[in-house]
Design a protein around this nucleic acid. Structure first.
Length: 684
DNA sequence: TTCCAGACGTTTTTT
DNA sequence: ACGTCTGGAA
């Protein structure tokens, strides 16, 4: 999978498209697409979409209407029309959705079509920038900052500018949110402050200065944050005609899944990419727009026709997934929203069981019920892998995790802390980052602060000297480069120099797995064991990381994919590491989008937990939460359990919680109600 | 300046 | 219960 995806990162300028090389693709590589009998395999709605002509097209698709399938078949159709795979761009929003999409392309065609670029917007942005970053002032070997890196960087900037001294000046977290929203929504900071942070408006000029300094800092470190992968890509398309021409020519067909989640910035990118030919097919469902906190613009969907005059609009309103009882519940729920395209979803499935509201005493009895019921379902023939438990926020699932662990039920948890965001993983990645980009200030910082006797102060001195050098790594490796650092740090510093001398030898070049091993064999193993109580476990994870790295093409690619979260299926390790093992899925609703299970439990359906209290502070908050509920319900094919814990086991004693608004507003005839039988809902 | 200990407040969703 | 912040000692 790794080597077949994406634009190769080559140093030379793009070659012109020539038909000769495309012919080879047609004849040798993609015979399968032309053999597909589209008419036989698709229903009439889907067929219209799949075989429709070029030009802009908006597909409004309800849940379970086979929209990803339609998109995948559209790709196959294009290939069968002799369009070479490398002239197709397939975009979506999350890694999860991207993986699913690409998996199905592969499944349908028998193999991944060589050259087809598919993945998240960030993935595509990364590839585009690897090719052209030098045109906008960066170098092509830039490294990528994850959320906490960029937060640290921002905190550093604020500290140096002495802005933090102002009372109530926003903390780095908040600042990052503001800046990120401004970038993604293409609004200037003043507008964002005005509309969403009026209480911070008095800091406007300071925030603007901090944002500018942050941007400059990243440029100097030759590193980009997640937002840069989009905004710099967009800059490239706007300011570099050569790059724009290249991408406009190269991608003669662009397909976007989960379009309702795109934001203004992504829209601008799409406009540039599809600007010349307009061959843009987007598929989405406004009722499933759940990323407004990331500046998703439902207007992109609602006003598609305005932006792309002459656009076709197609609808997929048949639902193949859920039994009518579940679909009925979903339709009733979403009808409470004002802002939407009303849709008439029809189920094709025969009648099934009614959804069930299960009232339990508290989160522990809720967990017990779920565990017990899912074992029964398994007895009745539903595979564990066909069951999911969905929740609004990560912390809501802890009681269930305990219960599952106690019963030895295997599960895969999605959402929450990501594998690559853990300290020990980031530590190791920092070494690799320096091998790729020795201007990466945050990587240097991370590594040097591990040394005894070096803190932020000494690091600053070190970096102001070394960053001025033409090649920071060379300067670092010079014998006297530790001058100015405290005596105590000298052994560690020398060890670090030795490690990097080793890592720069040819046999490590482009071999991230070998590099990771060398880092471990340096001082990191001891560091890990002496700093973390669960050191051995962390080491095991690092070895796992090395195993994954074996698959990577080179270090640069490995780092980018890892930081963008593409390398880990479940974002965390499961005990057995077996992919095919029968496992229950635990997932945030956000991450569950686009997936389906035979049986679905939605836990924590109490006001305040879901709808989530803090989300209601936003103006459109309740509607977005309801869309989230809608997404959750429509994941279920046959069995749907709505779980209500009555008593909140909180810090300030126990409190009775109201049933979630989203269930209350449904007619009681649409579901059954069960009272979970166990009375000893003790807090274990 | 670094580093440790203890207090504090805090808990969304993703790239 | 968990990372982040603060203050004080080395």
């Amino acid at each position: 999978m790794k080597e077949t995806r994406g634009i190769p990162c080559q140093a030379n300028p793009p070659e012109p498209m020539d038909n000769q090389s495309f012919k080879q693709y047609r004849l040798k590589k993609e015979p399968t697409a032309s053999k597909i009998d589209f008419k036989a395999e698709l229903n009439s709605e889907q067929y219209q979409v799949v075989t429709g002509g070029d030009g802009p097209c908006l597909v409004l698709a309800g849940p379970g209407s086979g929209k990803t399938r339609t998109l995948v078949y559209r790709v196959a159709f294009l290939l069968s029309q002799f369009i070479p795979p490398d002239r197709i761009l397939l975009l979506t929003f999350t890694n999860k959705a991207a993986r699913e999409m690409l998996r199905r392309v592969e499944l349908l065609l028998g193999r991944y079509p060589t050259g087809l670029v598919g993945g998240t917007f960030h993935h595509a942005g990364n590839l585009a920038l690897r090719r052209y970053a030098d045109r906008i002032g960066y170098r092509r070997n830039f490294t990528i900052l994850d959320r906490s890196d960029s937060k640290d960087c921002l905190a550093e900037v604020v500290g140096e500018m002495r802005l933090g001294k102002e009372r109530y000046f926003p903390k780095a977290d908040v600042l990052q949110g503001i800046i990120s929203f401004s970038v993604n929504s293409c609004q200037d900071l003043a507008a964002v402050l005005d509309r969403q942070y009026p209480y911070l408006a008095r800091f406007q000029s300071e925030i603007e200065r901090a944002a500018a300094a942050y941007q400059a800092r990243k440029l100097a470190a030759n590193s980009m944050d997640y937002d840069d992968l989009l905004s710099q890509w967009n800059r490239l398309l706007v300011y570099c005609p050569e790059a724009r021409d290249y991408f406009q020519d190269r991608f003669r067909s662009i397909l976007v899944d989960e379009y309702q989640d795109t934001n203004r910035l992504q829209f601008e990118i799409l406009k540039s990419l599809a600007g010349r030919h307009g061959n843009l097919m987007v598929v989405g469902d406004d009722a499933q727009s759940i990323y407004s906190f990331r500046a998703a613009e439902v207007r992109n969907t609602l006003d598609f026709k305005k932006f792309f005059p002459g656009a076709r609009i197609a609808r997929l309103e048949t639902n193949y997934r859920s039994v009518p009882e579940i679909l009925e519940l979903a339709n009733r729920s979403i009808a409470h929203n004002q802002n939407q395209f009303p849709k008439e979803l029809k189920s094709t499935r025969p009648a099934g069981p009614r959804p069930v509201l299960v009232v339990t005493q508290n989160a522990f009895s809720e967990a017990r019920f779920v565990a017990q019921r899912l074992l029964e379902l398994r007895e009745e023939g539903t595979a564990l892998s066909d069951i999911a438990v969905l929740f609004r926020a990560r912390y809501q699932v802890t009681e269930l995790e305990l219960e599952l662990a106690a019963r030895g039920i295997p599960y895969l948890i999605r959402g929450g802390i990501r594998f690559y965001e853990q300290a020990h993983i980031k530590d190791v990645l920092a070494y690799l980052k320096l091998l790729v980009n020795d201007r990466d200030e945050l990587a240097w910082r991370r590594i040097l602060l591990q040394l005894d006797g070096i803190g932020p102060g000494y690091f600053r001195r070190f970096w102001s000297r070394v960053s001025a050098a033409p090649v920071p790594m060379e300067t670092f490796l010079e014998p006297d480069s530790s001058s100015g650092l405290p005596f105590r740090s000298r052994p560690g510093f020398a060890g670090l120099q030795k490690l990097f001398r080793e890592l720069r030898r040819d046999e490590y070049a482009g071999q991230p797995a070998a590099q990771i091993k060398a880092v471990l064999e340096g001082d990191y193993r001891s560091y890990c064991l002496s700093n973390y109580t669960d050191g051995p476990e962390r080491l095991r994870e690092i070895e796992e990381l090395a195993r994954i790295a074996l698959q990577a093409e080179n270090t640069e690619r490995f780092l980018a994919e890892t930081v963008m979260g593409e390398n880990f299926k479940g974002e965390s390790f499961d005990g057995n590491g077996g992919e095919e093992q029968e496992m229950l899925t635990l997932s945030t609703i956000h991450q569950a989008k686009g997936l389906e299970w035979k049986a679905v439990f939605i836990i924590s359906l109490a006001d305040g937990r879901f709808p989530f209290a803090r989300a209601l502070e936003e103006p459109e908050g309740l509607e977005e939460e309801r869309r989230l509920f809608y997404v959750a319900i429509t994941r279920a094919k046959q069995y749907l359990y709505l779980m209500q814990p009555v008593i909140e086991y909180g810090w300030e004693g126990n409190q009775v919680q109201r049933l979630s608004t989203f269930v209350q507003e449904l007619p009681e005839s649409d579901y059954e109600t069960w009272l979970a039988g166990d009375s000893n809902g003790s807090a274990g």
